[in-house]
């Protein structure tokens, strides 16, 4: 009787709970939680590759360095631009493609497969591929075609354009991803709603804005939050296409963190930069959550 009671208190697993959770918890504590706390600790010390032992507490000095280094400010700005544009286009292009591919088209399965195709591959390789496609030399596919029509060479990698060229390739890569998530959402909307609306005389456009858009809120929220955070983490495509150049034109948070925090050995400053990155991500997710819930409130 006493045993039974004990069991109910801890749930049906009893003391086995800890054995079930332990393996995941150990790996997670060691490689996620522990590094997280060390990042905070390091960010307040004078840790660097020339000062490895006997770390001193230096207060907010590293954070001051982060905010006084133009490279790091440029990196944050670029990552924000990257995240916002990429996410915006994922929604603007992904939603209509999903809406059309939700119709009774004969080729809808193969069309879905084609749009999703680039999302399967590593952004690093996609970046290298587009590097060749956008190259200014004669073998660059786009410029090769432009020359055939007697047009002048278009340089995709000037300081003004390079960031947008990289973003363009990423829009191509990730729109299909967004489309798949929008489609899953669309398929969950009951067709009866549309039938009722068309009996009431609502046209297709009206149906899209009055029924589809409001009910798509959950998937749009997913794409906006994951897209913005994913965009802030941008590294692979930049690494393969521009490695931050020309100049600092395409440096992002992660390319700078790799260069300063790891390669150049400014461990403490790199950690402080990591903490700033974390705070920015928190603000973005808090902000988008707030906006999105306001949106769903205003609709219902």
């Amino acid at each position: 009787m006493r045993k039974m009671k004990k069991k109910n208190e801890t749930g049906s697993l009893g003391h086995y709970f800890i054995l079930f959770v332990l393996p995941a918890l150990v790996i997670y504590l060691l490689f996620s939680i522990l590094p997280f706390f060390y990042t905070f600790i390091y960010s307040f010390t004078d840790y660097s590759d020339i000062h490895i032992k006997g770390l001193n507490f230096v207060g907010l000095k590293n954070y001051v360095t982060v905010f006084n280094t133009s490279l790091m400010k440029v990196a944050i700005k670029n990552s924000l631009i990257y995240a916002v544009i990429l996410t915006g286009f994922q929604v603007i292009l992904g939603l209509p493609i999903a809406a059309v591919l939700n119709k009774k088209l004969k080729s809808k399965n193969i069309l879905r497969a084609v749009f999703f195709f680039p999302a399967v591959f590593s952004s690093l390789i996609i970046g290298y591929l587009w590097n060749f496609i956008m190259s200014s030399s004669d073998y660059g596919l786009i410029n090769n075609l432009l020359h055939r029509f007697g047009l002048e060479t278009f340089n995709f990698f000037t300081a003004d354009r390079a960031l947008f060229s990289v973003i363009f390739t990423q829009i191509w890569q990730w729109t299909g991803w967004a489309m798949v998530i929008f489609l899953a959402n669309l398929q969950g909307i009951s067709p009866e709603l549309y039938e009722a609306a068309s009996i009431d005389g609502a046209g297709e456009r009206q149906q899209f804005f009055k029924i589809t858009m409001p009910l798509m809120c959950p998937s749009v929220k997913i794409i906006v939050v994951t897209g913005l955070i994913g965009g802030m983490k941008a590294f692979d495509a930049i690494y393969s296409m521009t490695s931050g150049g020309p100049g600092n034109a395409t440096e992002t948070v992660m390319t700078v963190m790799m260069k300063k925090g790891i390669s150049d050995g400014f461990y403490a400053v790199g950690s402080a930069f990591g903490v700033c990155f974390f705070v920015i991500v928190l603000i973005i997710s808090g902000f988008t959550n707030k906006i999105m819930s306001k949106w769903s409130e205003s609709i219902s």
Binding site: E9, T10, G11, S12, L13, F17, V21, A24, L25, Y28, S32, I33, L34, P35, F36, Y38, T39, Y42, I229, M232, K233, F235, V253, M254, M257, M258, G261, I262, Y267, G270, S271, G274, V275, F277, F278, V281, L282, S285
Partner: peptide
Amino acid sequence: RTKNKWGNRVFLLFLAGLMVPFQMNIVS
């Protein structure tokens, strides 16, 4: 299957990981 406060706390600890980009911790 565990509906007590420890189960809940551990789950929240794991869930917090969804908000933390591991890239911020590359130095550590």
